[in-house]
Design a protein around this nucleic acid. Structure first.
Length: 741
RNA sequence: GGGCAGUUAGUUCAAUGGUAGAACGUCUGUUUUACACACAGAAGGUUGUAGGUCCGAUUCCUACACUGCCCACCA
């Protein structure tokens, strides 16, 4: 076997990956030998929007390391890959590309637009998975899933129906986060807050009996058009005498009451707050306590509705603000304005300003589900790693609110809800809530049924063609089923039986609540078992300056460029080398250079050892013939160091300390083996008594090191292994070789 | 506003109740039977600030500062 003096990844990687693909051994059904124990992991399915970033590269390298090691250790290993349809995110990407042609999704209509989405998915869906190959990730390509696949969709519908039967799904009118650009409701987790310089407007509301004014402070004066009350704290001496009186709402000339509510902070602003039930979450809740009307003044596009009054109708909310302020000034009702910095909510996906808005949505009751998730985490049925995330998760679960699972999007799973065309449901929120509290599941004023198939006959009017709800489910509703829906649930498949629950999942911390926890309670609910034994919340990769890597800031680093520059193994090395269990990695490219140098070191150590074999017959591969009597102290030391290193690595990987394991291996191979033993071996080889033993030990340490290095540096090790094989070593491909004993 | 981390060599990070280590970078030397992507060696740190416990703290405790993250309906 002739090796060049330097390792060149470009000559190797593509060829080696093809070899693995051809071997089929990514598929656990095709693995050789009896494998009684299984090890399974679900890939976090990337979006059809994204391209590979360093987070994916790190996450999937960690999983790949575990899978490769476990496969060598004789486990039946499944790593299941897939793609997420990513509702709002994907829809926005396609909408953006349409906008370049001057089109909006509404111009195409739902059906045409959805066709575009599917075309997009066909074109881009597999690109990111293909990119994973470049980093050496080898999941079971034969089991690739997509969250809108036919079978998967069925699982999603079944899940909805299950919850509905339990009485946990209800339809309600609530103030939710509304994105006027996407024209959909979104969850609390899909908004981001940014600090913005605004103004705090102090507005005088005249008392109805003309005895004076009450001044309220607000950042959004335009919402006063929908006010239903002025609220003060019941303990506030300044306003006690006003509670129960009425004020004349300026511009709108409506009479609204002054109410007392414990939720009002006496120390903020004037201590009196305007209440806009239809456009503020806190005000909405207050309106329930005081039975106030909920007047919607802003429509789904963020335009003032006719309820906003003749002078404001048709204006954008921000234009309306100016108009309202001008009107107030005209009547000398604007007491003062102050500069005020506050957090403003934006749509995470399109950066439009969120407009809280009263809207009819579907909710999933969280009380029982969060309880079950809390139990699962506390009992360690699923361990969160590192442990500090447990607290975060439990804290979120304890304060959880019902989950708004409906979205007014076009890309996603439509609800298995069918409406009667003839009977228009008259919906009353308070009515339905009180009914539910008494445990009565039937909300008789709604005109729908829940069913997997379209009913042949409408059970409500017996006369109409029922129409399916146009809403789709929150994308996370379907991702929450990922660990078992991908294995065939609700069918009782062999895969489900064999591979569920899975052993490990790796995830970025920002989706701990969005995804990990929701998988936990979904798994418990539908299968009785939590979907994974360990959820590893891995480090976030930051820029060297400690800033978030993001495309929009131009701070992202493309892993494909790193692979091109240093090779896949060196890139893996660099990522794992920096991953030492801390929450953040300040990305330093130095580590990839270290990785590249290490690959070269391994390469040349191999060249040296092979030179030593030239004088011997193939019996050198039989390590049983190493003479224990002839061991020098250096022989003993390296054999002992090797044993210690192996133990240490297994221990660290058991704890998911990938970086520590890699550093251990690095130190052993470079310093103990190359710097010391190889140098000593040169002297020993000159001694005829020791020569054969030395060569055998060199070979033994090298081959077993290559095995242990393989999960970390799969390409170079497989390439070297192939070379050893051509030298006459009786062996399979390294990927299915057995772990050192 | 509440909570969680981190702050150590030029850079990215380790470690430890008893005078701090690695990688990359820098400097000097070396082509010695794999590797100059190497080898041998060197320089480089009053371990964020201020207190406290201790014979002794970078390590434990308390404040503070800065950085990052999570949670939260303050108009």
């Amino acid at each position: 076997m002739k090796l060049n003096t330097a390792y060149n990844p470009k000559d190797v990687e593509e060829r080696i990956y093809k070899l693995w693909e051809k071997s089929g051994c990514f598929n656990p059904d095709k693995l050789p030998g009896k494998r009684t124990k299984k090890f399974s992991v679900m890939m976090a399915p990337p979006n059809i929007t994204g391209s590979l970033h360093l987070g994916h590269a790190l996450e999937n390298t960690m999983i790949d390391i575990l899978i490769r090691m476990k496969r060598m250790q004789g486990f039946k290993t499944l790593w299941l890959p897939g793609i997420d349809h990513a509702g709002i995110a994907a829809q926005n990407v396609v909408e953006k590309s349409l906008r370049k042609e001057g089109l909006r999704r509404q111009d195409l209509g739902r059906e045409k637009f959805t066709e575009k989405m599917w075309a997009w998915k066909e074109k881009y869906g597999h690109i990111i998975l293909g990119q994973l190959k470049k980093i050496g990730a080898l999941p079971d390509w034969s089991r690739t899933r997509f969250t809108l696949d036919h079978d998967y969709a069925k699982a999603v519908q079944e899940a909805f129906i299950h919850y509905h039967k339990k009485g946990w799904i209800y339809r309600g009118e609530r103030v939710i986060n509304w994105c006027p650009r996407c024209e959909t409701g979104i969850s609390d987790l899909e908004i981001e807050y940014r600090e913005e310089k605004g103004k705090l407007y102090h507005i005088k509301y005249p008392l109805a009996d003309k005895s004076g004014f009450i001044t309220v402070a607000t950042t959004r004066p335009e919402t006063m058009l929908g006010d239903a009350a002025v609220a003060v704290n019941p303990k506030d001496g300044r306003y006690k005498h006003l509670v129960g009186k009425f004020v004349a709402l300026p511009i709108q000339n409506r009479r609204i009451p002054v109410i007392a509510d414990r939720g009002v902070d006496m120390d903020f602003g004037t201590g009196a707050v305007k209440v806009t039930p239809a456009h503020d979450v806190a005000d909405f809740e207050m309106s329930l306590r005081h039975n106030l009307p909920k007047i919607k003044i802003i429509d789904e596009k963020g335009i003032m509705a006719n309820t906003a009054g003749p002078i404001c109708e048709g204006l954008k909310a921000i234009e309306c603000r100016e108009k309202v302020v001008a009107e107030l000034q005209k009547f000398e009702l604007l007491e003062k304005t102050e500069d005020y910095v506050h957090n403003v909510a934006f749509c995470e996906r399109c950066s439009a300003k969120i407009e809280p808005r009263l809207s009819k949505q579907w909710f999933l009751k969280m009380a029982k589900l969060s309880e079950s998730a809390i139990k699962t985490i506390k009992s360690k049925e699923t361990a969160l790693h590192p442990k500090k995330w447990e607290k975060m998760a439990l804290n979120w679960l304890k304060n959880i609110r019902d989950w708004n699972i409906s979205r007014q999007l076009w890309w996603g799973h439509q609800l298995p809800v069918w409406f009667c065309k003839n009977q228009t449901g008259v919906f009353n929120f308070q009515f339905s809530i009180s009914k539910q509290k008494k445990g009565k599941n039937k909300i008789k004023d709604d005109n729908f049924i829940v069913s997997l198939e379209k009913p042949k006959e409408c059970p409500i009017c017996k006369n109409c063609e029922m129409e399916q709800s146009v809403d789709v489910l929150d994308t996370w509703f379907s991702s929450a089923l990922w660990p078992f829906a991908t294995l065939g649930w609700p069918q009782k498949t062999a895969d489900l039986k064999t591979y569920y629950p899975t052993d490990y999942i790796a995830s970025a911390r920002e989706i701990l609540n969005l995804w990990i926890i929701r998988m936990i309670f979904s798994g418990k609910e539908f299968t009785g078992k939590s979907p994974f034994k360990t959820a590893h919340i891995h480090a976030t990769i930051l820029t060297k300056e400690g800033k978030r890597m993001s495309k929009s800031l131009g701070t992202g680093i493309d892993p494909l460029l790193l692979i091109d520059k240093y090779g896949a193994d060196a890139t893996r090395f660099g990522l794992i080398y920096q991953n030492l269990g801390n929450q953040d990695i300040r990305f330093a490219e130095d580590a990839m250079i270290t990785g590249k140098k290490f690959c070269n070191k391994i390469w040349n150590a191999t060249r040296f050892v092979l030179l030593q074999t030239e004088n011997f017959q193939f019996s050198i591969f039989n390590f049983k013939t190493i003479s224990k009597l002839k061991l020098s102290k250096y022989d003993k030391k390296i054999l002992n160091d090797f044993k210690k290193t192996k133990k240490e690595i297994e221990k660290q990987l058991e704890k998911y300390e990938f970086g520590k394991a890699l550093r251990k291996l690095y130190d052993f191979f470079w310093h103990d083996f190359c710097d010391v033993y190889i140098e000593k071996s040169k002297q020993q080889s000159a001694n005829p008594k020791l020569a054969k033993n030395t060569a055998q030990i060199l070979f033994y340490i090298l081959t077993n090191s290559i095995k242990m290095l393989h999960p970390f540096l799969p390409f170079i090790t497989e390439e070297i292994w192939g070379g050893l094989k051509s030298e006459g070593l009786q062996t399979d491909a390294l990927i299915i070789e057995s772990w050192p004993k």
